[in-house]
């Protein structure tokens, strides 16, 4: 079995973001980076599947970006992936989701991957398009937002998170692509021997030009911070009086008491 996990390196969400000079993405200076949370679930699930199947599957982890994404790839290798592919692209932040998906599809199309994991979305751009677009471009079965995953005899049984707290069970045969949601698993902390071993694993670098043929179908026009709305109201004073005033505000300004 061959598995592909697609990961993205994203800035630490605790960081203070600034819009860049061209006004279409964030400024990358002074940011610390880590692996996209949802992609970490994908790595963990792929490694768990590998362990479940007696180490048989070969797990490739792929990331697109500048040299710094090597760190995220190394972490995935330390977690248990077998080989890493770094698609080198210093300007990946400004590629549209469709272009990113095209690059992945171009890489994966003749490699015979039985299963592809991606996160359900990235924490920075949050378009949630890359996974499904890759599946479309490759003509694959696709299941999104998985919170539970089981695979036996070439058939995947998954639980998808739906709206309103509902879950849906899906069953499909390989080959397929799945996108991972919070709750699927708890990504492991790599052991030190595995961190050491990761340094010796195959690490391929591919320039993005070799895989990119698609033109962007959408372009980011402008990136800006949300305009500040009016400040909050702090009620002070006697408890009963505050309650009355709160009820008044709720009646006037909201729909909850109408």
């Amino acid at each position: 079995m061959k598995i592909l996990v697609c990961i993205k390196q994203i800035p630490d969400m605790e960081s203070r973001f600034k819009v860049n000079g061209t006004g279409d993405w964030y400024d990358e200076a002074d940011l610390a980076y880590r692996m996209n949370e949802y992609d970490e679930y994908g790595v963990e699930q792929a490694v768990q599947l590998k362990e479940q199947l007696g180490n048989d599957p070969d797990v490739t982890v792929l990331s697109i970006g500048s040299d710094r994404v090597g760190e995220a790839l190394k972490k995935a290798l330390a977690m248990g992936c077998d080989r890493a592919v770094h698609v080198q692209d210093a300007d990946s932040g400004r590629k549209s989701p469709y272009q990113i998906a095209s690059v992945i599809a171009a890489f994966a199309k003749d490699k015979g991957f039985d299963l592809i994991f991606t996160g359900m979305q990235s924490q920075d751009r949050g378009s949630a398009q890359v996974g499904v677009t890759v599946a479309e471009l490759l003509g694959r079965t696709c299941a999104t937002t998985l919170v539970d995953f089981a695979c036996a005899d070439g058939v995947v049984t998954g639980k998808r998170e739906l709206e309103g707290g509902m879950k849906g069970v899906v069953k499909f045969a390989l080959p397929a692509l799945v996108t991972c949601q919070l709750g699927l698993n708890i990504p492991r902390y790599p052991t030190l021997p595995n961190i050491m071993k990761a340094k010796k694993k195959e690490f391929v670098v591919v320039p993005v030009a070799e895989l990119l043929a698609a033109e962007p179908m959408t372009v980011t026009e402008k990136l800006y911070a949300p305009t500040k709305k009016g400040g909050g109201i702090v009620l002070e004073g006697d408890m009963a009086d505050m309650a009355d005033r709160l009820v008044g505000i709720l009646k006037d300004k909201t729909a909850v008491l109408r």
């Binding site: 630490d12 605790e14 960081s15 203070r16 002074d30 610390a32 880590r34 902390y189």
Partner: peptide
Amino acid sequence: LFENIEGRSNPWGIAPT
């Protein structure tokens, strides 16, 4: 804790800035 210190160099995981 480990991820906070490794990623943000403080135990609380607050932004280094």
